[in-house]
Protein backbone atom coordinates (compact mmCIF):
# COMPACT_ATOMS: atom_id res chain seq x y z
CA UNK A 1 0.00 0.00 0.00
CA UNK A 2 1.87 3.02 -1.27
CA UNK A 3 1.65 6.03 0.97
CA UNK A 4 0.62 9.62 0.74
CA UNK A 5 2.87 11.70 2.96
CA UNK A 6 2.14 15.17 4.24
CA UNK A 7 4.08 17.77 6.16
CA UNK A 8 3.31 21.39 7.01
CA UNK A 9 5.03 23.69 9.50
CA UNK A 10 1.74 25.14 10.61
CA UNK A 11 -0.67 22.73 12.32
CA UNK A 12 -3.83 24.07 10.70
CA UNK A 13 -2.14 23.84 7.30
CA UNK A 14 -1.18 20.27 8.15
CA UNK A 15 -4.86 19.40 8.75
CA UNK A 16 -5.66 20.80 5.31
CA UNK A 17 -3.02 18.58 3.73
CA UNK A 18 -4.50 15.56 5.53
CA UNK A 19 -7.80 16.44 3.86
CA UNK A 20 -6.13 16.76 0.44
CA UNK A 21 -4.28 13.50 1.03
CA UNK A 22 -7.46 11.72 2.14
CA UNK A 23 -9.26 12.68 -1.06
CA UNK A 24 -6.43 11.05 -3.03
CA UNK A 25 -5.99 8.12 -0.66
CA UNK A 26 -9.58 6.97 -1.12
CA UNK A 27 -9.03 6.65 -4.85
CA UNK A 28 -5.52 5.22 -4.56
CA UNK A 29 -6.29 2.82 -1.69
CA UNK A 30 -3.31 4.31 0.03
CA UNK A 31 -2.37 5.18 3.60
CA UNK A 32 -1.75 8.66 4.95
CA UNK A 33 1.49 9.38 6.77
CA UNK A 34 1.83 12.67 8.63
CA UNK A 35 5.19 14.11 9.63
CA UNK A 36 4.96 16.16 12.80
CA UNK A 37 7.50 18.23 14.75
CA UNK A 38 8.79 16.66 17.95
CA UNK A 39 6.02 15.94 20.44
CA UNK A 40 7.83 16.78 23.71
CA UNK A 41 5.91 13.98 25.39
CA UNK A 42 2.51 15.25 24.31
CA UNK A 43 0.70 13.08 21.78
CA UNK A 44 -2.43 15.20 21.58
CA UNK A 45 -1.72 16.43 18.07
CA UNK A 46 -0.74 12.99 16.84
CA UNK A 47 -4.04 11.53 18.07
CA UNK A 48 -5.91 14.45 16.56
CA UNK A 49 -4.25 13.80 13.19
CA UNK A 50 -5.12 10.10 13.41
CA UNK A 51 -8.72 10.95 14.20
CA UNK A 52 -8.77 13.18 11.14
CA UNK A 53 -7.44 10.59 8.72
CA UNK A 54 -3.75 9.86 9.38
CA UNK A 55 -2.75 6.17 9.42
CA UNK A 56 0.74 6.79 10.66
CA UNK A 57 2.53 9.62 12.46
CA UNK A 58 6.26 10.18 12.06
CA UNK A 59 7.70 12.44 14.72
CA UNK A 60 10.73 14.48 13.81
CA UNK A 61 13.43 14.28 16.49
CA UNK A 62 13.89 17.17 18.93
CA UNK A 63 16.31 19.81 17.69
CA UNK A 64 18.65 21.88 19.85
CA UNK A 65 17.82 25.57 19.80
CA UNK A 66 20.71 26.47 17.52
CA UNK A 67 19.98 23.70 15.01
CA UNK A 68 18.50 24.60 11.65
CA UNK A 69 15.21 22.90 10.91
CA UNK A 70 16.71 21.58 7.66
CA UNK A 71 18.79 19.17 9.75
CA UNK A 72 15.76 16.86 9.37
CA UNK A 73 16.25 16.50 5.62
CA UNK A 74 18.47 13.37 5.67
CA UNK A 75 16.06 11.63 8.06
CA UNK A 76 13.04 12.33 5.90
CA UNK A 77 14.93 11.30 2.76
CA UNK A 78 16.01 8.01 4.39
CA UNK A 79 12.39 7.25 5.38
CA UNK A 80 11.11 8.03 1.90
CA UNK A 81 13.71 5.76 0.30
CA UNK A 82 12.64 2.99 2.65
CA UNK A 83 8.87 3.43 2.48
CA UNK A 84 8.57 4.60 -1.13
CA UNK A 85 5.49 6.80 -0.89
CA UNK A 86 3.68 7.63 -4.07
CA UNK A 87 2.81 11.23 -3.19
CA UNK A 88 4.46 13.75 -0.84
CA UNK A 89 2.64 17.02 -0.14
CA UNK A 90 4.41 19.81 1.75
CA UNK A 91 2.86 23.05 3.02
CA UNK A 92 4.28 25.97 1.05
CA UNK A 93 5.57 28.09 3.90
CA UNK A 94 8.99 29.63 3.18
CA UNK A 95 10.77 26.82 5.08
CA UNK A 96 8.43 24.27 3.54
CA UNK A 97 9.43 25.33 0.04
CA UNK A 98 13.15 25.06 0.79
CA UNK A 99 12.64 21.71 2.50
CA UNK A 100 10.62 20.35 -0.43
CA UNK A 101 13.12 21.45 -3.08
CA UNK A 102 16.04 19.97 -1.16
CA UNK A 103 14.27 16.67 -0.50
CA UNK A 104 13.21 16.48 -4.16
CA UNK A 105 16.82 17.06 -5.27
CA UNK A 106 18.10 14.27 -3.04
CA UNK A 107 15.42 11.90 -4.31
CA UNK A 108 15.89 13.10 -7.88
CA UNK A 109 12.15 13.51 -8.22
CA UNK A 110 9.84 16.19 -9.60
CA UNK A 111 8.23 18.90 -7.50
CA UNK A 112 5.26 21.06 -8.44
CA UNK A 113 5.77 24.33 -6.53
CA UNK A 114 2.72 26.21 -5.26
CA UNK A 115 0.24 23.76 -6.72
CA UNK A 116 -3.21 25.33 -7.15
CA UNK A 117 -5.13 22.23 -8.21
CA UNK A 118 -4.49 18.51 -8.24
CA UNK A 119 -6.43 15.54 -9.51
CA UNK A 120 -5.77 11.96 -10.56
CA UNK A 121 -5.43 11.13 -14.22
CA UNK A 122 -8.05 8.68 -15.42
CA UNK A 123 -5.63 6.35 -17.19
CA UNK A 124 -2.76 5.73 -14.77
CA UNK A 125 -3.82 7.35 -11.48
CA UNK A 126 -0.88 9.73 -11.54
CA UNK A 127 -1.32 13.31 -10.35
CA UNK A 128 -2.18 16.09 -12.74
CA UNK A 129 -1.38 19.40 -11.15
CA UNK A 130 -1.67 23.06 -12.03
CA UNK A 131 0.47 26.00 -11.03
CA UNK A 132 0.78 29.64 -11.99
CA UNK A 133 3.58 30.91 -14.22
CA UNK A 134 4.58 34.35 -15.49
CA UNK A 135 3.53 35.98 -12.25
CA UNK A 136 0.06 34.50 -12.56
CA UNK A 137 -0.58 35.54 -16.17
CA UNK A 138 -0.67 31.89 -17.21
CA UNK A 139 -1.30 28.42 -15.83
CA UNK A 140 0.91 25.40 -16.36
CA UNK A 141 -0.46 21.84 -16.11
CA UNK A 142 2.17 19.32 -15.08
CA UNK A 143 2.69 15.69 -14.16
CA UNK A 144 5.60 13.93 -12.49
CA UNK A 145 6.99 10.74 -14.05
CA UNK A 146 9.30 10.04 -11.08
CA UNK A 147 8.28 8.94 -7.55
CA UNK A 148 7.31 10.25 -5.12
CA UNK A 149 5.26 12.89 -6.87
CA UNK A 150 5.95 15.98 -4.80
CA UNK A 151 4.08 19.26 -4.51
CA UNK A 152 4.08 22.28 -2.24
CA UNK A 153 0.54 23.30 -1.37
CA UNK A 154 -0.50 26.82 -0.38
CA UNK A 155 -2.77 27.34 2.64
CA UNK A 156 -6.53 26.94 2.19
CA UNK A 157 -6.39 24.87 -1.00
CA UNK A 158 -8.22 22.24 1.06
CA UNK A 159 -10.44 22.66 4.10
CA UNK A 160 -9.11 21.07 7.31
CA UNK A 161 -9.85 17.35 7.64
CA UNK A 162 -12.74 16.58 10.01
CA UNK A 163 -12.57 14.26 13.02
CA UNK A 164 -14.00 10.79 12.35
CA UNK A 165 -15.10 8.22 14.88
CA UNK A 166 -13.07 5.14 15.80
CA UNK A 167 -9.92 5.72 13.79
CA UNK A 168 -6.59 4.18 14.81
CA UNK A 169 -3.02 4.64 13.67
CA UNK A 170 0.66 4.10 14.44
CA UNK A 171 3.02 6.59 16.01
CA UNK A 172 6.72 6.38 15.32
CA UNK A 173 9.70 8.60 16.12
CA UNK A 174 12.53 9.27 13.68
CA UNK A 175 16.13 8.85 14.92
CA UNK A 176 18.14 11.91 16.02
CA UNK A 177 19.22 14.27 13.25
CA UNK A 178 22.90 14.65 12.33
CA UNK A 179 24.25 18.12 13.21
CA UNK A 180 23.21 20.72 10.66
CA UNK A 181 25.72 22.79 8.71
CA UNK A 182 23.65 25.89 9.40
CA UNK A 183 23.45 27.18 12.97
CA UNK A 184 20.80 29.54 14.30
CA UNK A 185 22.38 32.45 16.17
CA UNK A 186 19.22 34.37 16.93
CA UNK A 187 15.60 34.79 16.05
CA UNK A 188 13.23 37.73 15.84
CA UNK A 189 9.78 36.22 15.94
CA UNK A 190 6.78 38.04 14.64
CA UNK A 191 3.11 37.39 14.95
CA UNK A 192 1.05 36.25 12.05
CA UNK A 193 -1.92 38.45 11.18
CA UNK A 194 -2.57 37.13 7.71
CA UNK A 195 -5.71 35.30 8.82
CA UNK A 196 -7.57 38.60 9.20
CA UNK A 197 -6.74 39.52 5.60
CA UNK A 198 -7.63 36.20 4.04
CA UNK A 199 -11.00 36.29 5.80
CA UNK A 200 -11.68 40.00 5.19
CA UNK A 201 -14.98 40.93 3.56
CA UNK A 202 -13.68 44.34 2.52
CA UNK A 203 -10.01 44.88 1.84
CA UNK A 204 -8.15 48.10 1.14
CA UNK A 205 -4.81 47.67 -0.58
CA UNK A 206 -2.07 50.25 -0.21
CA UNK A 207 0.27 50.63 -3.20
CA UNK A 208 3.27 52.78 -4.03
CA UNK A 209 0.93 55.55 -5.16
CA UNK A 210 0.56 56.40 -1.46
CA UNK A 211 3.37 58.88 -1.01
CA UNK A 212 4.24 58.84 2.68
CA UNK A 213 3.82 56.50 5.60
CA UNK A 214 1.82 59.22 7.42
CA UNK A 215 -0.76 59.05 4.66
CA UNK A 216 -1.76 55.60 5.92
CA UNK A 217 -3.93 57.47 8.44
CA UNK A 218 -6.20 58.42 5.55
CA UNK A 219 -6.42 54.75 4.52
CA UNK A 220 -7.03 53.71 8.15
CA UNK A 221 -9.85 56.24 8.45
CA UNK A 222 -11.55 54.71 5.42
CA UNK A 223 -10.91 51.19 6.72
CA UNK A 224 -12.59 52.05 10.01
CA UNK A 225 -15.64 53.45 8.23
CA UNK A 226 -15.98 50.35 6.05
CA UNK A 227 -14.95 47.78 8.64
CA UNK A 228 -12.20 46.83 6.23
CA UNK A 229 -8.77 45.25 6.66
CA UNK A 230 -5.65 46.79 5.13
CA UNK A 231 -3.25 44.88 2.90
CA UNK A 232 -0.57 46.11 0.54
CA UNK A 233 1.64 45.46 -2.46
CA UNK A 234 5.07 43.89 -2.05
CA UNK A 235 7.07 47.16 -2.25
CA UNK A 236 5.03 48.59 0.66
CA UNK A 237 5.74 45.65 2.98
CA UNK A 238 9.10 44.38 1.79
CA UNK A 239 10.87 47.58 0.75
CA UNK A 240 9.18 50.46 2.60
CA UNK A 241 8.26 48.27 5.61
CA UNK A 242 5.17 50.40 6.27
CA UNK A 243 3.08 47.29 6.90
CA UNK A 244 4.11 43.79 8.06
CA UNK A 245 5.23 41.32 5.40
CA UNK A 246 2.21 39.09 5.96
CA UNK A 247 0.06 41.94 4.59
CA UNK A 248 1.58 41.51 1.13
CA UNK A 249 -1.05 40.33 -1.36
CA UNK A 250 -0.06 38.36 -4.45
CA UNK A 251 2.22 35.70 -5.83
CA UNK A 252 4.80 35.89 -3.06
CA UNK A 253 2.29 36.95 -0.44
CA UNK A 254 -1.24 35.85 0.30
CA UNK A 255 -4.24 35.05 -1.83
CA UNK A 256 -7.40 36.95 -0.83
CA UNK A 257 -11.07 36.66 -1.76
CA UNK A 258 -12.96 39.63 -0.33
CA UNK A 259 -16.39 40.82 -1.45
CA UNK A 260 -14.78 44.17 -2.20
CA UNK A 261 -11.14 45.02 -2.91
CA UNK A 262 -10.10 48.64 -3.29
CA UNK A 263 -6.63 49.20 -4.77
CA UNK A 264 -5.25 52.57 -3.68
CA UNK A 265 -2.34 53.68 -5.85
CA UNK A 266 -1.73 50.09 -7.00
CA UNK A 267 -0.43 49.72 -10.57
CA UNK A 268 -1.74 46.18 -11.00
CA UNK A 269 1.34 44.22 -12.00
CA UNK A 270 0.41 40.62 -12.66
CA UNK A 271 2.21 39.29 -9.56
CA UNK A 272 -0.15 41.34 -7.41
CA UNK A 273 -3.32 40.84 -9.46
CA UNK A 274 -3.03 37.10 -9.26
CA UNK A 275 -3.61 37.39 -5.50
CA UNK A 276 -6.97 39.16 -5.93
CA UNK A 277 -8.39 37.16 -8.83
CA UNK A 278 -11.08 35.67 -6.58
CA UNK A 279 -12.30 39.03 -5.24
CA UNK A 280 -15.99 39.56 -6.02
CA UNK A 281 -15.63 43.26 -6.83
CA UNK A 282 -12.38 44.96 -7.70
CA UNK A 283 -12.29 48.72 -7.46
CA UNK A 284 -9.13 50.66 -8.23
CA UNK A 285 -7.98 54.22 -7.76
CA UNK A 286 -5.09 55.28 -9.97
CA UNK A 287 -4.13 58.54 -11.66
CA UNK A 288 -2.59 56.82 -14.68
CA UNK A 289 -5.20 56.02 -17.33
CA UNK A 290 -2.99 53.20 -18.61
CA UNK A 291 -2.55 51.49 -15.24
CA UNK A 292 -2.87 47.72 -15.85
CA UNK A 293 -5.16 47.34 -12.83
CA UNK A 294 -7.94 49.09 -14.76
CA UNK A 295 -8.21 46.13 -17.15
CA UNK A 296 -9.00 43.78 -14.27
CA UNK A 297 -11.27 46.17 -12.34
CA UNK A 298 -15.04 46.27 -12.02
CA UNK A 299 -14.85 49.95 -11.07
CA UNK A 300 -11.87 51.91 -12.35
CA UNK A 301 -11.54 55.35 -10.81
CA UNK A 302 -9.05 57.43 -12.72
CA UNK A 303 -7.89 60.15 -10.39
CA UNK A 304 -5.66 61.31 -7.60
CA UNK A 305 -6.10 59.14 -4.53
CA UNK A 306 -5.64 62.22 -2.35
CA UNK A 307 -8.78 63.64 -3.91
CA UNK A 308 -10.73 60.39 -4.18
CA UNK A 309 -10.21 59.00 -0.65
CA UNK A 310 -11.59 62.13 1.09
CA UNK A 311 -14.59 62.06 -1.27
CA UNK A 312 -15.30 58.42 -0.39
CA UNK A 313 -14.88 59.11 3.32
CA UNK A 314 -17.22 62.08 3.10
CA UNK A 315 -19.72 60.07 1.07
CA UNK A 316 -19.74 57.26 3.62
CA UNK A 317 -20.34 59.63 6.51
CA UNK A 318 -23.47 61.01 4.85
Amino acid sequence: MAGIWVFAEDYEHNLELIQGGTELAQKLASKIVVILPHNAGNDEKAHDCIARGADEILYLPPLAEDEDFMACIPLIVAEVLQEKPDVFLIGSSLRGKELAARIAARLNTGLCSDCISLELSADDQSLIMERLIFGGAAVQRVSIPTRPQMATIPPRLFSPAAVQEGRTGNIRELPPAPPSKVKILGKKTRTHEAAALTEARILLCVGRGVEKEEDLTLVRELADLLGAEIGCTRPISDEMHWLPEECCIGLSGIQVKPELYIGIGVSGQIQHITGIRDARIICSINNDENAPIFAVSDYAIQGDLYKVLPLIIEGLKK
Binding site: G110, L111, A138, Q140, V142, I144, D298, Q302
Partner: peptide, 20 residues
Protein backbone atom coordinates in the same frame (compact mmCIF):
# COMPACT_ATOMS: atom_id res chain seq x y z
CA UNK B 1 11.27 15.12 -13.52
CA UNK B 2 8.36 17.45 -14.23
CA UNK B 3 6.40 17.17 -17.45
CA UNK B 4 4.48 20.12 -18.79
CA UNK B 5 1.20 18.87 -20.24
CA UNK B 6 -0.23 22.26 -21.19
CA UNK B 7 0.18 26.01 -20.64
CA UNK B 8 -2.62 28.49 -21.08
CA UNK B 9 -3.35 32.06 -20.20
CA UNK B 10 -5.22 32.87 -17.01
CA UNK B 11 -8.18 35.08 -17.80
CA UNK B 12 -8.51 37.89 -15.32
CA UNK B 13 -10.01 40.65 -17.40
CA UNK B 14 -13.17 42.27 -16.06
CA UNK B 15 -15.67 44.44 -17.82
CA UNK B 16 -14.81 47.49 -15.85
CA UNK B 17 -16.84 50.63 -15.52
CA UNK B 18 -14.71 53.76 -15.86
CA UNK B 19 -15.25 56.45 -13.27
CA UNK B 20 -13.75 59.89 -12.75
Amino acid sequence: CLQVLASFKANMERNGQKLS
